[in-house]
């Protein structure tokens, strides 16, 4: 039996609102081809969009010339999406936001991104590079019920 080679697609995107949709649509098309259900495809699309927005807005501060690199890796059992930024700071773990606090104005109405990402994909790994920049890896698995795993490391 021939050895399966993962299919890899790489996108280099300007750090400008709207370009997250390019990654989102690409991820959706690949996930659909891999046989994920429409509901899981949409979950992945929302997570990819939020991961890109995080890089665009917080890491690159909307500097269009600074590119984020999105790598989509379609394997036999899973789809991996790596979103690589060149910015500083960290990606805080997405605790469940308190909507009441936000509605009453005690908390910023923003801050949903990481919560959505962690809720919608099977695995999230945040890798911080000492020289600057981060990789946010999202994994969606083809088999079994979905589960949520969060990991964090630095290299």
């Amino acid at each position: 039996m021939p050895r399966f080679e993962p299919r890899v697609v790489q996108l280099s995107l300007p750090s400008e609102f709207g370009y997250e949709k390019v990654a989102m649509l690409s991820a959706g098309a690949i996930a659909e081809n891999m046989g994920f259900s429409p509901a899981r495809v949409q979950d992945l699309q929302t997570a990819v969009s939020e991961a890109c927005l995080n890089a665009i807005e917080h890491a690159h501060r909307l500097r269009a010339g600074v590119k984020l690199v999105v790598t989509l890796r379609a394997g036999v059992e899973e789809l991996q999406v790596n979103v690589v930024d060149r910015g500083g700071g960290s990606i805080p773990r997405g605790r469940r936001p308190h909507i009441l606090e936000k509605v009453e104005g005690h908390e910023d109405s923003r801050g949903w991104g990481m919560f959505l990402i962690e809720s919608l994909v099977d695995q999230v790994r945040v890798t911080t590079r000492r020289g600057g920049g981060k990789t946010l890896r999202l994994v969606l698995r083809l088999d079994g019920p979905r589960r949520s795993v969060y990991e964090q490391d630095s290299v």
Partner: peptide, 19 residues
């Protein structure tokens, strides 16, 4: 066709406004 986290935040602001 597309709502992102900024759209959700906006809806939270709308909720605050209607309350």
């Amino acid at each position: 066709g597309y709502i992102n986290s900024a759209g959700i935040s906006l809806l939270v602001s709308l909720v605050a406004e209607v309350i």
